[in-house]
Simulated scan of single mutants.
Amino acid sequence: MSTVGYDYTLTRTLDAPAGKVWAAWTVADDYGAWAGAEEVVLDARPGGSWSTVMVIPGGARVPLSGGYIEVVENKRLVMSMDVPGRDEPALMTVDLAAEGERTRITLAQTFDTAEERDQAEQGSNFLLDGLTAYLATA
């Protein structure tokens, strides 16, 4: 990620082992179940790609796609996301730290503007809320 810009970092501790959290991010059916996503395709390997249609509150459908830059099983994902109007994809880093039967997850991104950062941070909090709820029942 760029070292210049507007960044955010979100950290939560989840009541699930790292392997279960990893599967939630890397198995298409699992991801779709908690992320409010349809038509999920995940090829979670360096150089692999992903695509999905996010269904946001209110019912709007937003197609998203990108790639995987770094993949370290049960520990780290660095993903790109193609953003219309941007020359370069946005990057998101997902770090997992096993804490016994719990997992600390950290999401981080950097953007060119405060507005982009604020929108992405809101979306990431929404994702983490969905992930937390999914893991509580999965």
Results as ranks from 00 to 15, higher is better:
residue 13 T to F: 02
residue 102 R to V: 00
residue 22 W to M: 08
residue 50 W to D: 12
residue 117 R to F: 03
residue 91 L to Y: 14
residue 48 G to T: 10
residue 128 L to K: 06
residue 38 E to D: 15
residue 95 D to Q: 07
residue 125 N to I: 02
residue 110 T to M: 11
residue 59 G to L: 10
residue 18 A to F: 04
residue 16 A to N: 03
residue 106 T to N: 06
residue 27 V to T: 10
residue 52 T to S: 15
residue 15 D to R: 11
residue 119 Q to C: 00
residue 91 L to N: 03
residue 2 S to I: 03
residue 34 W to V: 01
residue 32 G to I: 04
residue 116 E to Q: 15
residue 1 M to N: 04
residue 119 Q to I: 00
residue 20 K to F: 01
residue 11 T to G: 07
residue 60 A to N: 11
residue 134 Y to R: 07
residue 79 M to V: 10
residue 130 G to P: 03
residue 115 E to D: 15
residue 84 P to N: 10
residue 41 V to R: 14
residue 93 T to E: 11
residue 129 D to H: 02
residue 138 A to W: 03
residue 44 A to E: 09
residue 76 R to S: 02
residue 15 D to S: 12
residue 40 V to A: 13
residue 126 F to Y: 10
residue 111 F to T: 01
residue 98 A to Q: 12
residue 75 K to E: 15
residue 138 A to Y: 07
residue 44 A to P: 14
residue 45 R to F: 03
residue 48 G to M: 13
residue 15 D to C: 03
residue 8 Y to C: 05
residue 26 T to E: 11
residue 51 S to N: 07
residue 46 P to N: 10
residue 36 G to H: 05
residue 2 S to A: 13
residue 61 R to E: 08
residue 77 L to H: 09
residue 2 S to Q: 14
residue 41 V to Q: 15
residue 110 T to Y: 03
residue 108 A to P: 03
residue 54 M to Y: 00
residue 67 G to S: 11
residue 73 E to P: 05
residue 5 G to T: 02
residue 104 R to V: 12
residue 135 L to Y: 09
residue 81 M to Y: 07
residue 135 L to P: 04
residue 133 A to S: 14
residue 62 V to A: 09
residue 51 S to P: 01
residue 105 I to A: 13
residue 128 L to F: 05
residue 79 M to W: 03
residue 14 L to E: 13
residue 62 V to G: 08
residue 84 P to G: 08
residue 23 A to P: 01
residue 94 V to D: 06
residue 38 E to S: 14
residue 99 E to M: 12
residue 98 A to Y: 04
residue 65 S to N: 15
residue 65 S to D: 14
residue 14 L to C: 11
residue 95 D to F: 01
residue 25 W to D: 09
residue 97 A to S: 14
residue 6 Y to F: 09
residue 5 G to A: 06
residue 10 L to Y: 05
residue 31 Y to E: 05
residue 82 D to W: 01
residue 114 A to K: 11
residue 33 A to R: 14
residue 57 P to I: 04
residue 43 D to E: 15
residue 28 A to P: 05
residue 131 L to N: 09
residue 87 D to H: 04
residue 7 D to M: 08
residue 21 V to E: 12
residue 115 E to I: 06
residue 22 W to Q: 08
residue 81 M to H: 10
residue 87 D to E: 14
residue 13 T to C: 06
residue 84 P to T: 00
residue 2 S to L: 11
residue 40 V to C: 12
residue 2 S to C: 02
